[in-house]
Amino acid sequence: MTPPSITDLAIRYGFLVLMAGLIIVFSMLRPAFLSPQSAVFILQSVAITGILALGVTATLVVDGFDLSIGAVATSALMLSAYVMVIWEMGAVAAVVLCLLMGAGVGLINGLLIVKMRVPDLLATLGMMFLLVGLQRIPTQGNSISTGMVLPDGSAAEGTFAPGFLMLGRHRIDFVIEDLVPLSVVFLIVIAVLTWVFLELTRHGRVMYAIGSNAQAAALAGINVGRYRIAAYMISGVMASIGGILLAARLGRGDVASGNNLLLDSVAAALIGFAVLGAARPNAFGTAIGALFVGILLQGLTMLNAPYYTQDFIKGAVLVVALVFTFALSGRVGRARA
């Protein structure tokens, strides 16, 4: 074995070093950055995009892409509000219907791509537009909140169930009272489950095989189409969980929220390629990628950087991460070509 070269080390640990550097710089400039409250705030801000990013990771693993996740999440937001406020049903019904909607959208995406042979980017882009429009049709483009005037003239009398709101607002005592939001717990549990599924089970293994050489996987007796559809269903369900948490945090069906969900979560998943030099989609990298974006934004906010510089810096980080993945670890790229 030859000792690893500087380039190898840079590819493997570059991004983690960069993240540690960011934390050090921010905490020197703003000591409050290192407090537990600040850490929890970062986690809370990345919880929803992190969950969406883990879903999109599943589609990236089978060499697909899901652009509809943001729209699925906002559809779940509107659907849960509609179910509770207008249909006056309970929290369980809202959650179950949202999860079913996410799985259904994923199934349709998968069928479009596998059976109808629509390219993945186009199928999910079309689905995105469709959902963005569909979610506004029942309320004629209005946001949903208790007391809103319905088309028949009456007022909506339903309310968000307390149990539902807890999903987004409850905090658990952990060392300090009321420290960890429930949504952060969801993120961690989902991240661990996704990691276990992709890295340790035979299904994850087979999905990676499909992403690397679908033809060879099919000739090894694997039902490639079924796994592809499953990947989009995982992505749809994850996105709907993100939407449920968003609805629970906001407490109303806001048509304008969730604009950044798609870009932030795709950025997290793509940054994940570079973590530990994986050069492939992976759950751990995606989680770190989401955290990285969260740290960066929290730090910039504490430094009072204007909001528009944040998008710019996010984009710059994504480009650098992609260079890490595809140029520096070029051996992988060349080998695939």
């Binding site: 095989a209 690397s212 050489n213 060879a216 492939r280 695939r336």
Partner: peptide
């Protein structure tokens, strides 16, 4: 290379 090898594995 086309039909059998999984290059990422």
């Amino acid at each position: 290379l086309a039909n059998a090898v999984i290059p990422g594995f």
